[in-house]
Amino acid sequence: MSQITLKQIAERAGTSVGTVDRALNNRGRISPSTKEKIIKIADEMGYQPNKIASALSRSKCLRIAVIYAKYPAYFVDEFTAGLKKAIEHFTHYKIEIITYRCNALDPQSQIEVIKDIDFSNIDGFSLNASGQELAPYINRISDMGIPVVTFNSDIPGTKRLFHVGMDPFMAGRVSFNLMAKMLQGKGKILAMPGFHSVLSHEERIKGFLEAARDYPNIQVIPGGEYKDRDDLAIDLVQKALAKHQDIAGIYTVSSPGVIGAGKYLSQLPKESRPIAVGYDTSQDMKQLMEKDACTFVVYQNPAAQIYYSIVYLVEYVLFGTLPSQELNFLPPQIVVRENIDYYLEGDNKFIFVN
Rank of each mutant, 00 (worst) to 15 (best):
I259E: 13
F208N: 03
Y215V: 09
D230H: 03
M192F: 04
L236D: 02
F208Y: 12
G278F: 03
K206G: 00
V220Q: 06
M285H: 02
A248C: 14
K291C: 05
A276S: 15
L232N: 05
S200G: 01
K243E: 15
K181N: 14
M289A: 01
L236Q: 13
V198N: 01
Y264Q: 05
L288T: 00
S272V: 15
M285G: 07
Q219G: 00
Q245N: 11
Q245R: 13
I250Y: 02
K227S: 07
E271Y: 08
P216L: 04
K227F: 04
Y279W: 12
S197V: 08
G260K: 07
L268F: 07
I250K: 08
D246S: 10
A191H: 00
T252R: 01
F208K: 01
D235H: 09
Q219C: 09
I247W: 07
P274M: 09
C294W: 00
M289G: 01
P274K: 08
Q238T: 10
A212M: 07
A240S: 15
S272T: 15
M192H: 07
N217K: 13
L265H: 06
A211Y: 04
H201Y: 03
Y251E: 05
I250Q: 05
Y251T: 04
F195R: 02
I221G: 08
F195P: 00
G194Y: 00
E271A: 14
A293E: 00
M182N: 12
Q283T: 12
I205C: 07
R213T: 11
K227P: 00
R204G: 00
H201N: 15
S272W: 10
K227Y: 02
G185C: 12
K291V: 03
S282H: 06
D284K: 14
S197C: 05
K188H: 13
D235W: 00
F195W: 13
L265Q: 10
T295E: 11
K181Y: 05
D280K: 05
Q267R: 13
I189N: 06
G194C: 06
L236K: 10
A191E: 02
S197N: 06
E271G: 04
G187N: 09
K186G: 01
L183D: 10
F208G: 01
K188T: 12
K286P: 06
A293M: 09
K239L: 10
M192Q: 11
P269T: 02
S200R: 02
K239E: 13
A293P: 03
E290Y: 08
Q219Y: 07
Y215E: 13
D214V: 02
L232M: 12
D284L: 14
A293C: 09
L209M: 15
D214F: 06
A233L: 12
D231Q: 14
Q184V: 07
G249Q: 09
Q184A: 14
V298N: 08
L236S: 08
A242D: 14
D228G: 03
K263Y: 07
Q219K: 14
